[in-house]
Design a protein around this nucleic acid. Sequence first.
DNA 1: AACGTTGAAATAGTTC
DNA 2: GAACTATTTCAACGTT
Lengths: 97, 97, 97, 97
Amino acid sequence: MSTLQVSAQKHLRQFVEQIERLEEEKKALADDIRDKFAEAKAVGFDVKALRQIVRLRKKSASERQEEEDMLAVYMHALGMLDEDSETASAGTLVAAE
Amino acid sequence: MSTLQVSAQKHLRQFVEQIERLEEEKKALADDIRDKFAEAKAVGFDVKALRQIVRLRKKSASERQEEEDMLAVYMHALGMLDEDSETASAGTLVAAE
Amino acid sequence: MSTLQVSAQKHLRQFVEQIERLEEEKKALADDIRDKFAEAKAVGFDVKALRQIVRLRKKSASERQEEEDMLAVYMHALGMLDEDSETASAGTLVAAE
Amino acid sequence: MSTLQVSAQKHLRQFVEQIERLEEEKKALADDIRDKFAEAKAVGFDVKALRQIVRLRKKSASERQEEEDMLAVYMHALGMLDEDSETASAGTLVAAE
DNA sequence: AACGTTGAAATAGTTC
DNA sequence: GAACTATTTCAACGTT
């Protein structure tokens, strides 16, 4: 039983070390990304908007549209939008339940 | 000198306790807010959109517009928008430097 | 575009208002905390250090507990503990079947 | 609406592509880490505990240091230390004027 | 007053 | 699909 445990300990140690190694590499990349944004900022780009761009590009056009639509519905309900200006694609007159 | 320090210690302790008390109350409110969103979710609202609404209402209309405009410029530059669909308020033809 | 039922509109409005009310109270508390630090500074305390004390005290409780749990976690990882005993105090760990 | 200069467009595109490239690499590493955990699980380790070990080890280094700094912080708050001595080791604290 | 730094809040992802 | 964890984003703070 003691032998088994010792071997398990070594095995555990290996996993921990491998994972920590990978996480270090991952962190290095996260830092690189951070640097890129900083670099973009330094030459005058709006970092917040840039982040949003990267985020949006991960989503499909339809996903984006769905989120915008939901927001528009809520804004409309709260009087935050003029009656007509919701969006260009004004077609879908779906009645809310 | 020792007397001074003892009195300073008491004073310090008071500040720490008062601050911790206030932070507890603040945390309690944060929890209440969390609960409200959970409640809204439970009755069918889209929490993410709801959060965005609350966020947008903190900003003035002009602030909102500015952010949207910047995003549209970037999306346009990357071909993520059709040429015409940027937004309803298409008026401001400012030439980029 | 789709719209909300009138009742849903009212409901939404209620949520938004309640949340905004709570956030105002939360902000007021944040201001109070800020004032406390300013007050402490005014009587000669080092605000940076004071902040650090508050932060460290907050962490200490949970962190200390976590460190104490270390052994149990390792034993668990090595299969020396069963599922239910992980929250037991260190003293009873060996007794767990 | 305003548009970017052609050169700025290219620059923006470059940033976006570089960032997306880095994020892909980062995601690949995240997948590798996930695989490692899965591998560990496959040979019988408790993944949750393993995760906890990795997390605790990460914290330990910095946290332990912070706890050691506690005394200095308190002394600083009480005006018993000057500005520069705060990073000194505990042993030399009383020597600081 | 911009800058980076840090802590809190929000979102995304994973597990059960 | 609900809870938990990890990651990402955002805002406040001190700093220069």
